[in-house]
């Protein structure tokens, strides 16, 4: 296993644990944690803190019949274990689950780049991107938060080189031109909470069509 150097920040992990993180980013966090033991440990620590907060809450009164009615619903046989989703190829289990159990069907974006939008809503967009080796993603800035997790290959930008399992967290202050590493295509999972801002005219015109 290669060494992961770029991790999820603590506030993002806490927000994921609490359920406050918008869906597109929650998928990136779940995918990264599936690949990264350090962040799994940090997430479990956040969940331990959540458990302590739950324990310390002031108790609410229950209506009289609730306990009896829950107890009557207990069945004796444990539920048959649901098949847990598993990683397929470079795609971690939560991504496979979001894709309905199958590796992605791609759509061409031009210049060899392909994408598959997994989710798009008011909460933001999360997509898979497939970028040919050595090719640049158009120079862009962000209106909001962007999280990019590398699933295969690598990319580099002004912030450094990102390999498999690394996650880049970018905000509106960063304008970058990620370039896919040589050797093999770069596949990444990218979540945004606002459309990307492209700095040249053509991608800007295509943006409404391509939803990037």
């Amino acid at each position: 296993m290669n060494t992961i150097r770029h991790h999820i920040s603590q506030p993002l992990l806490a927000a994921y644990a609490s359920g406050a993180l918008p869906h597109p980013f929650a998928l990136v966090v779940a995918a990264h944690v599936s690949m990264c033991d350090d962040c799994r440990a940090r997430l479990e620590a956040e969940q331990a803190a959540g458990g302590v907060v739950l324990e310390a809450l002031e108790c609410a009164d229950l209506s009289g019949g609730l306990k009896a009615s829950v107890l009557t619903l207990l069945d004796d046989d444990p539920a048959p274990a649901r098949a847990e989703p598993r990683a397929i190829g470079p795609y971690p289990a939560p991504v496979i689950e979001a894709l309905g159990g199958q590796p992605p069907r791609w759509r061409a974006l031009g210049l060899g780049t392909r994408q598959r939008i997994i989710h798009a809503s008011d909460a933001g967009t999360v997509r898979l991107l497939h970028i040919p080796a050595g090719q640049a993603v158009p120079d862009h800035g962000h209106n909001g938060l962007e999280m990019t997790l590398v699933l295969q290959g690598s990319f580099s930008d002004d912030c450094g080189t990102f390999g498999v399992g690394d996650v880049e967290i970018a905000d509106q202050d960063l304008e970058h031109t990620p370039v896919a590493g040589k050797g093999m295509p770069c596949i990444c999972l990218a979540a945004t909470d606002a459309p990307l801002k492209f700095n040249s005219l053509l991608p800007r015109m295509l943006q409404p069509i391509l939803r990037i």
Partner: peptide, 29 residues
Amino acid sequence: AQVSSWIYQIARNRQVDLVRKERRPVPEA
């Protein structure tokens, strides 16, 4: 995990699932 931490996760998952169409993404077990 402590029981409280485990119950906390189940409860947060439930609350998130209530307000969203998609199931909450969770890491591979």
